[in-house]
Design a protein around this nucleic acid. Sequence first.
RNA 1: GCGCCUGUAGCUCAGCUGGAUAGAGCGCUAGCCUCCGAAGCUAGAGGUCGCAGGUUCGAACCCUGCCAGGCGCACCA
Length: 667
Amino acid sequence: MYLATQSRIQQAVRDFAQRQWQLDVNVLISVPPQPAMGDMALVLAMELARKLRRPPKQIAEEIAAAARLVPGVARVEVAGTGYVNIFLDRAAYASRMMATTIAKTEVSTAVPLAEKIIVEHTNINPNKAAHIGHLRNAALGDTFVRLLRARGAQVEVQNYIDNTGVQVADVVAGFLHMEKKTPEDVARLIADPTIRFDYYCWDLYARVSKIFEEDKSRLELRRRTLQEIEHGEGDTARVAEMVATEIVRYHLRTMLRLGVEYDVLPRESEILHLRFWDQAFELLKQREAIYLESEGKNAGCWVMRQKGAAETAAKEIDSADATAAGDDTKVIVRSNGTVTYVGKDIAYQLWKFGLLGRDFHYQPFHTYPDGRVLWVSSMTSGQAGAPAFGQGQKVYNVIDVRQSYLQDIVAQGLRALGYQSEADRSIHFSYEMVALSPRTCELMGIELSAEDKARPFVEVSGRKGLGIKADDLIDQLIGEARREVDSRHPDTPDEKRAEIAQKIAIGALRYFLLKFTCTSVIAFDLKDALSFDGETGPYVQYAVVRARNIFRKLSDEGGRFDLSRITPELLASSLNSPEGDSFWQLLYLCSRWEFAVEQAVATSEPAAMAKYSFQLAQAFSNFYHHHRILIEQDPDRKMFLLWLVSVLDSHLTHALDLLGIEVPAAM
RNA sequence: GCGCCUGUAGCUCAGCUGGAUAGAGCGCUAGCCUCCGAAGCUAGAGGUCGCAGGUUCGAACCCUGCCAGGCGCACCA
């Protein structure tokens, strides 16, 4: 509704500018700072003043005259130095809102929706439990997927599993060499219901890392373990497979608690064994994107020269600290013949665009409660019926900002292969890290160095075992919510209370992770995250719950909401009455949900959607306190108010759904 | 050293791609439950938008230079 109206006005003004001044203008429409000033504002007159060498106010009058003719516009005013303020025909607008039910594919923009978009997110190394940093990735990725789907796009969600990397190797080395376990021992550990295997690995990983740190001579063990895993050999590979698969199952369970689901799990082991890399390697060599280094510290490696590196290379760098001197090449294949992450990722990106000329085999890995099947890449041709994965027209890679450099190199690899446009359509959806506030560290008994204490936040480190495990946090949030629910609803059945507490906890967590923009480091503070007041998920949920309570109470009293009694005349009289302004503002804000979606997608900022939902909840809370609906004497007015509440309910529920937040039955 | 990001109220953050009197939440102060649930509402105090120049009708936003902080710059991912 909002976007359609907006584009109608844009079109009219653009046509007018074309006719009147033979100018091709971009008509920007904004919302005036105060509702009394109008519903939409044009600043075009001020922009054109110089070009037309005429006073902006005069130009504004002409634009206003054109805007007045647009259907749905009630009146237009020129204000200030040349603003064109548009007031919409409220009743007509409301009628059209009533005619359209809010649906997932309703955003009425002219974006090409036939394209298939691939979103890759989560990508946790399968060697330990997930922590809060991973939750931010998944919450952002999942919300972005929901936003894209709301616009009608076809989206495929991939969760890349690096099951052959160093991180898994470290845990495997820990099991086999530190703990002297056999594959059977590890299998028993996994089968033991009293042990959280992912938590066990969390600790083991920290221990192994410490030992490698202390004694560099043991790094040979890491190297050997890694190689055995890559080649799929013996006990090492068996244990790696067991560990990675089991941990992935834990990760999926954790993410499902947040309502996050995936379509396919492409695994690194298949990238290697199905020779994806060999194919990419051939391409890279053919196009001379990489070359075999014969001298220097990278002798024996296949390397890629970086963009603009030639001049840098020409300069002689004789500084002592060579690490700081900046390298101009990036190793793709190590001297021992193994491939680096960048190399594998180039192959993976090529596959995503359908440029590799190869495909995975697939097997079902898991069936979600809603019936959706999650597939995993596989060596052997598995079950029939797997969808056609990959072949995206656009790819979003949700990866934290610290990997920007590597992402750039991957994109450069694509360009070096001649895939310029694919590189442009492979987007690094970058976000800042989640760190811990010093206060939270203290609360958790984490000892801080004097250096760390002076910092505004402390970086999470899986390697050091420093961080908050995702499930621990969720459990704590549920506990906190449960206490509140118990005290408010002592008579509600236990099962119901558990469900309510769970939804509140998840709502709080997802909102907390989403309300910051991507460039903001979240200095995670336990107290803030556990709060259910103010700008939080529960505040927004509460608004919907109260809206629904009105309808529940209504039917308890034997009343009935009858949509057919909302006539155009009633809408007109209600919205144009002296107090109609406040009704209109609520209604208008509801209609702008699609703008929030557009904004969030265009800027890759799910936070915009979170902010919008909070704003809408706030507007309703205010409305709620000003109007006692159920005791309203005038039956027409009561119906109108009920209608407003129902519009709010559907829109806010939908907004929350896009954030992956459910509405509890009560609060 | 080079690259990217950030600096807005006491704290944590928004700020619709350059527009009108810079906004929220938390915290603080003062009110509001006989009334659809107070996880709520209302009001108040609190700002040199890091600093200095520049661009223009107009700058928190764009450009330049400083200052401060963060993150990258591996044959780890």
